[in-house]
């Protein structure tokens, strides 16, 4: 088996498992998450706020809500216990939403907010992990 064959085999078997998964059942039904709001939990300088945002979540709309809530444009980071990923555009936001949707243990999209010109995660001024 060469690498290409291995990758094809992996893709086929992952897809097969996905068809039988609880995740796929919940995301392909008529009452899928595409018809519900996304619960977004912002954290800025220790203060937390929760808002509901209708799907599909738009990056500029989310930025606008941040500006309304905090009076300034802030840089957004998607966070969980392991990682912090900057959300700089619609594509980053959609990836974060996918991570949220595929984890039944997460109820909110956790967004850590920093002032412009963010420092890397893990640094004293960067977003914390976890």
């Amino acid at each position: 088996m060469d690498e290409k064959e291995a990758l094809n085999s992996i893709k086929n078997d992952l897809a097969a498992g996905m068809k039988q998964s609880a995740w796929h059942k919940s995301h392909s039904s008529a009452k899928s998450s595409s018809q519900t709001d996304v619960r977004v939990k912002f954290e800025f300088q220790g203060e937390k706020r929760i808002i509901q945002v209708p799907r599909p979540v738009n990056f500029q709309d989310l930025q606008s809500k941040v500006k309304t809530a905090y009076g300034q444009l802030l840089t957004m980071f998607y966070t969980n216990t392991e990682i912090s990923i900057p959300i700089l555009n619609q594509s980053d936001l959609e990836k974060a939403i996918i991570l949220l949707d595929h984890n039944p243990h997460m109820k909110s999209l956790r967004i850590y907010l920093c002032k412009e010109n963010p420092t890397p995660p893990g640094s004293p001024q960067g977003p914390p992990h976890g």
Partner: peptide
């Protein structure tokens, strides 16, 4: 953890 969506329901 990223394997979650690919695990059959019976094993989840």
């Amino acid at each position: 953890a990223g394997m979650r969506p690919f695990i059959p329901e019976k094993d989840s």
